[in-house]
Amino acid sequence: MSKKAFTFISRTAPYGSNRPKMSLDAALATAVFEQEVNYLFMDDGVYQLLANQNGEPIQAKTLGNALETLDLYGIDEVCVDYESLQKRNLEAGDLTIPVTLLDATQMRALINQSDFVINL
């Protein structure tokens, strides 16, 4: 079977809901099938990437740590909507892992070339 391109879009902040975890789990499961997997953080989703997270005081698993494993599991491209970062007064240096910053044109191209786009 030929390889398909999956793009996961995550738009919600960590800890407030289990959506970020659901999205991550689905992406990791897809990577197991050796498909092309892209991960795009938009809007409040960029907060998931902030460095120095510690879920311990709220009895939660630290999501930032889980994201550090993305490349180990074969996620091809971790992307961030640059405008979403800017709006929140953040820059790439504030994030826990290296990411590819995308403008609107690049995001459109990514979505266009994907076989599946999954918003969780």
Partner: peptide, 12 residues
């Protein structure tokens, strides 16, 4: 929920 804004950012 600003879903339309998010959608319009990536729509082709």
């Amino acid at each position: 929920h600003e879903l339309l804004q998010a959608c319009l950012k990536i729509i082709n």
